[in-house]
Structures are given as C-alpha cells and as structure tokens.
C-alpha cells in the first residue's frame, strides 16, 4: 500500500454527526451520529419508521437534514466550506458520484438496457472512456451472474435480477462508499438469497458499505458493526456477535425477539 492510501485509512469513509430531520413537525432523525471506516460493512437495523432510510437519504443529500454534518472521506457534503452556503447541484453531483446507491425498488432506468443502465453514469457523469467502462460493466455483469442479460431491458428481468443489475450499476461508479436502502425488501422471498450472496461477496472483498436492511442473518454474518435505530435515534450499536448474542438495551432485546424469532 502507498503512503496516501495509509493516510486515507486513518479517516473514516463516512462520518455522520448530529443529523436532525423534521417532516411537518414530526421528528424523523434526532441527532444521529455514526461512522463507517474503510472496508467496513455497517448494517442499520430498526422497525419501519425508525428513520433508517431517511438517514441514508441524508448521506447523499437526497434529503436535506435540518442540522448536523455528513463527511465523505473528510469532505463535507451539502454545505460549502464554512457550513453556511448550501452546495449547488454541480458540487453535490461531484460528491454523489463517489457513492453508489442501491434502492429498495431498484429504480433502474426503463429506457436503457441492462448494460446501458450500468455505463450511463460512469460515461455521462464521471466522463470516463466508454470502451473502458463497457469492459468493466461486462466483468461486473459476469460477477453478478447476469452476463446473458446484457442487452435485455429492465422490464424483462425478475426482481432479483433487477437488484443485481442495481448493484452492478452502483459498483460501476467505483464508489468509495456503497449505500443499500433495504435492497431485498421488495423481492419475493425465494429471490432474496441471490442478492444477499452478491452483497456478502462484496463485503468480503473489502467494499465499504452502509446497509439498511431487515435481513438479520445477513447482518449477523457479514456486518462489522450493527446499528439499531428507533424513533429517529440510535438505540444501540456494536459488533454483531455482541448485539445479537447479548444486547445491552431492553429496546434491542424487544426488537430482536420480534424480528429474529420470526
């Protein structure tokens, strides 16, 4: 590893501090702070409405938090230096293109083929060479087991296939951080496995991932850190062994009882 890479290792890839978000008087996030180190997989758990997805949307500024800061590799997102002037769309885009997002409902672009979906942003946002990106995209499709769907349109794919394309699309950005927003919640139960398998191999390969999920098995086996949210706050965080084996808080115990036994 080079010197700069070692230095980069010292700072967290993602550092969220004191995020607050209110929708029409309803407090959705109430002073949430969280860090994700390079190579870590962090799972955000919690009942629906606990604010996990909103937190994820605050990371790439799809949702603008009322208070708090988000740092990507030490760079502030959403606000210019000084923290008073909000960033313009172009500045936000430069930071967003360093993250890859996987959505609950896939959100593939219906007018583009599988391959076109994957190369769209690398070519037109990151301005990378088309032939190079295509070669990478084909390798990614191979990795997620969809090489034969290269020229299919998203509407012709199953949910599990769509989500694997969604992951390949995010990876093609060569992101420093991968964001997963309940990537398996919209899938039929028998299709969850194929997506989980891809996510596990990404985690093992050392990707930095922040994952909102209800898949307790995935969190337990793969996460480096598990974070439980409830009512817009972090209730408990720790390593999965300890969290699932011996939770410290009563709220975590209740949550695990309901979700793990089910």
């Amino acid at each position: 590893m080079t010197d700069t890479a070692v230095k980069a290792n010292d700072i967290s890839v993602l550092e969220i501090s004191g995020i607050t978000k209110t929708f029409d008087d309803k407090v959705v996030l109430d002073g949430v702070s969280l860090t994700v180190a390079r190579g870590q997989t962090v799972c955000l758990l919690g009942p629906s409405g606990s604010g996990k997805s909103t937190l994820l949307r605050c990371v790439n500024w799809l949702e603008r938090p009322d208070q708090g800061t988000v740092l990507l590799c030490g760079e502030r997102i959403g606000m210019r230096k000084g923290g008073v002037v909000p960033m313009g769309n172009a500045e936000l885009a430069r930071l967003r293109m360093r993250m890859g997002t996987v959505f609950q409902h896939f959100n593939l672009w219906p007018h583009l083929t599988v391959l076109q979906n994957i190369i769209e942003a690398p070519v037109h946002v990151q301005k990378r060479r088309r032939d190079e990106v295509i070669a990478e995209a084909e390798a990614l499709l191979e990795n997620v087991g969809l090489a034969d769907k290269r020229d299919a349109f998203p509407s012709r794919l199953s949910g599990g296939q769509k989500q694997r394309v969604g992951i390949a699309r995010a990876l093609a950005m060569k992101p420093e951080l991968l964001l997963f927003d309940e990537p398996t919640s919209a899938l039929d139960p028998e299709l969850v496995g194929e997506v989980i398998a891809v996510m596990k191999s990404l985690s093992q390969a050392g990707s930095t991932m922040l994952v909102v999920t209800h898949e307790m098995g995935f969190a337990r086996e793969t996460a480096d850190k598990v974070v439980l949210m409830d009512g817009g706050r972090i209730v408990e965080q720790g390593d999965p062994e300890q969290f699932f084996g011996n939770p410290r808080t009563e709220r975590a115990r209740q949550f695990l009882q309901r979700y793990v036994s089910a």
Binding site: M97, M99, A121, H124, V125, M173
Partner: peptide, 16 residues
Amino acid sequence: RETIEAAVAFGFHGWR
C-alpha cells in the same frame, strides 16, 4: 419520481 431520484443519486443534474 424514483428513476429520476436514482439519477440524482448517481450525480446527474441540470441539462444532462
């Protein structure tokens, strides 16, 4: 709205 939001998350904005 979601497909547009996905594009924003991937760094698309403005005319593009």
